[in-house]
Design a protein around this nucleic acid. Structure first.
Lengths: 126, 126
DNA sequence: GAAGTAATACTACCAAGGTAGTAATTGCTT
DNA sequence: AAGCAATTACTACCTTGGTAGTATTACTTC
């Protein structure tokens, strides 16, 4: 929920949230399966419990088993993490960030087209 | 140096590296001052020692005092962290990342111009 | 109803970041 | 020389993510 420092997620925590966002409410077993990684059942269960304590997920019972669901929105988290990065590395400069990404990644012309369209679309808006 | 998981830096570690990149080789006291944060002298000294153990910085002695310098390049680190983020959050899609940044940040028209120029410049290159 | 199985709860550990106190050293200043 | 100030070394502690074992509980199946 609230000011929970939504950025600062470990790899496993993010992985689990992604499963819950993609697949919707899931049992521990389902999450374990969906992560694709080779983790003990109890590892996933423990992490889910820790995440619930932090307000990242909630659960309700279905029979004797817990069904977990994400308590934070994908956009919130993505936004939080991305913003934090832009601030930490580029002093909040979006241009700096995009520039760096363009410099250091392979970008094919199609992607450049996409980007240009994005910018056009944004220009309309303001 | 090498395979040291250059992404995965704590806030303080990144902060310290930024000081060393900006100001060049510095004593502990200088780093402490430059971080701007209110940290005990020994906190900075300890962190520098831990970072040296991880290969992030090196030191040489000048009289009885240590002068630390960054052992990793700014670009390496920035690239590592940014790449990791794009992979973690956007499945490696640069367009997805940029799109998200545009959606969630205030972007003024000047910045859009800058971005467009960036893209043009990149188009030339390929 | 006895045995097996699946689920959760509890506990424990390790590593790393972060923070800082205390001790020891050494050099400078009066 | 005596004492103060700066500096490094060592140690300690807390938190969090990550990983998983063991114990307990409860449902299912024969």
């Amino acid at each position: 929920m609230q000011g929970n420092c939504i950025h600062r997620l470990g790899d496993l925590q993010l992985r689990i949230l992604q499963v819950l966002w993609d697949d919707g409410p899931s049992s521990v077993a389902a999450v374990q399966r969906a992560t694709g990684e080779d983790l003990a059942y109890t590892t996933v269960a423990t992490m889910l419990r820790k995440m619930e304590a932090r307000g990242l997920v909630t659960h309700h019972e279905s029979g004797r088993r817990y069904i977990y669901r994400a308590a934070v929105k994908r956009d919130e988290v993505t936004h939080g993490i991305a913003d934090r990065l832009v601030d930490r590395l580029f002093h909040g400069s979006l241009t700096g960030a995009v520039n760096h990404l363009l410099e250091t990644r392979e970008v094919d012309p199609d992607e450049l087209d996409d980007l240009e369209r994005l910018i056009q679309r944004h220009r309309m808006r303001s």
